[in-house]
Design a protein around this nucleic acid. Structure first.
Lengths: 233, 233
DNA sequence: CTTGTTTTTTGGTCTATACCGATATATAAT
DNA sequence: ATTATATATCGGTATAGACCAAAAAACAAG
């Protein structure tokens, strides 16, 4: 247990809130009170509170007290375009399941889109995204193998952009998106729990680094019945 | 000048950086040194530095020093189109601040877009969205008053879609979006901490219920320097 | 010149105390 | 009962000092 005291206190308070010691909207004890309870100075206690405020778990009100904040995921509402936002706006929980994750030879379109050379390999990931338990889309992402050969699987699947930026110094630039419609294949229809031939909304996306190099090619197939993606310009 | 000392120091340091006293990537004097220079305690000086770090203007490196950060907020686009997802993909924390929230007479464009009748009132909300502490966009959302008259403010600002669906039985359908460019007005430039006449990327969005009724009209003004929105079709 | 070790510098954490202004609550006046 | 006022509580700011671990710089050894 070598973490700083204020982090430990942060964790204890957070756990207490999750355990229901104080409910949403309720006031927690004053800083001076908590500081004696935890046997630390008020400034240290304040630091623990501050991190919880930064995380949106607590709210401060001068002269009144510190209160358990309502929710934080709910702040994300307004522009209804993305899967995640739509999902959360409807009060459902987005999740994903990785179908496959392996290195292989690129297809012709992948060679073209990602500007690959002879012999270059790619990392291909397939995943399904869910809203609650309902499958919404099937997604295939392709990345040049040389870009991610040094990274762990979780580094690639969980926060690819951050990992690429921090560990490979690759600055993310623009992205090209194309939207079209198609029919579900047998394979995809099984993944998405629909019938073969059902309507699919297809989103192709090619992401470029700031130097103009394409580094990620994503093809997403949304279930037409369960997702809408409108663009008018 | 009644603002706290640490804010005043924050402003002075920020101004000095903008004036080129220390260039990007360069190290600024040590905290102990600056604290004597400004004649404050080190903790107060630290608080000024901390706010600058939160804003992405400075970066700390233990044992080394504090440096002028390389970039402001990166103009990246990843695999997503929404502000929230974009922000999180860059490892930053999205947040928002409500500027105003009141019922009023609709404008001509609002009457047209939302298909309002004579005498109908609208609820108009203005808010600013941030990535970490940096303002990214200014957003005005208009909703027919009759739709939300029964709801509390937090129900509208925090999870409008969920509330509409659960309490009004309104199923969210499609949304039309238009993207264009314009110049920042004086008012908006102050909100977004930019100059009047700076480039603004404007996104207008009209959201329809599943029965075809328009129910929300959102106009978002993104800071051109801090946000990019690519669409190719 | 290179490599390993020590010293110094720097940010990170923590204490104990103090005063301020905003808010809430108890009290007094009407 | 209502309204004005004083008091207590609360978070916000600020001080002056202390020790720690990471990093850099100075130094020593080969």
């Amino acid at each position: 247990m070598n973490s700083p005291v204020y982090i430990q206190i942060h964790n204890e308070i957070k756990k207490a809130i999750e355990a229901g010691k104080w409910k949403v909207g309720e006031r927690i004890p004053a800083e001076r009170e908590l500081s004696t309870e935890f046997s630390v100075s008020r400034m240290t206690l304040r630091q623990a509170i501050s991190t919880l405020v930064d995380e949106g778990i607590l709210e401060r009100k001068v002269g009144s007290g510190t209160y358990v904040a309502s929710q934080k995921v709910q702040e994300k509402v307004s522009g209804v375009t993305s899967f995640t936002e739509l999902t959360e706006a409807q009060g459902k929980k987005p999740s994903s399941r990785t179908i496959s994750y392996h290195t292989s030879e690129p297809s012709l379109s992948e060679i073209e889109k990602l500007q690959l050379n002879d012999g270059d390999l790619v990392l291909r990931m397939e995943r399904i995204r869910f809203a609650d338990a309902v499958p919404i889309c099937y997604e295939t992402a392709t990345i040049p193998e040389k870009l991610v050969s040094d990274f762990s699987k979780s580094e690639v699947t969980k926060s690819l952009y951050k990992t690429l930026e921090e560990k490979a110094g690759l600055m993310i630039g623009r992205a090209e998106q194309t939207v079209s419609a198609m029919l579900a294949s047998e394979k995809v229809s099984e993944y998405l729990d629909i019938k073969r031939g059902d309507a699919i909304l297809r989103l192709h996306q090619l992401s470029y680094a700031q130097d103009g190099t394409p580094f990620e090619y994503v093809r997403t197939q949304y279930v037409g019945e369960r997702f809408e993606f409108y663009l008018n310009r």
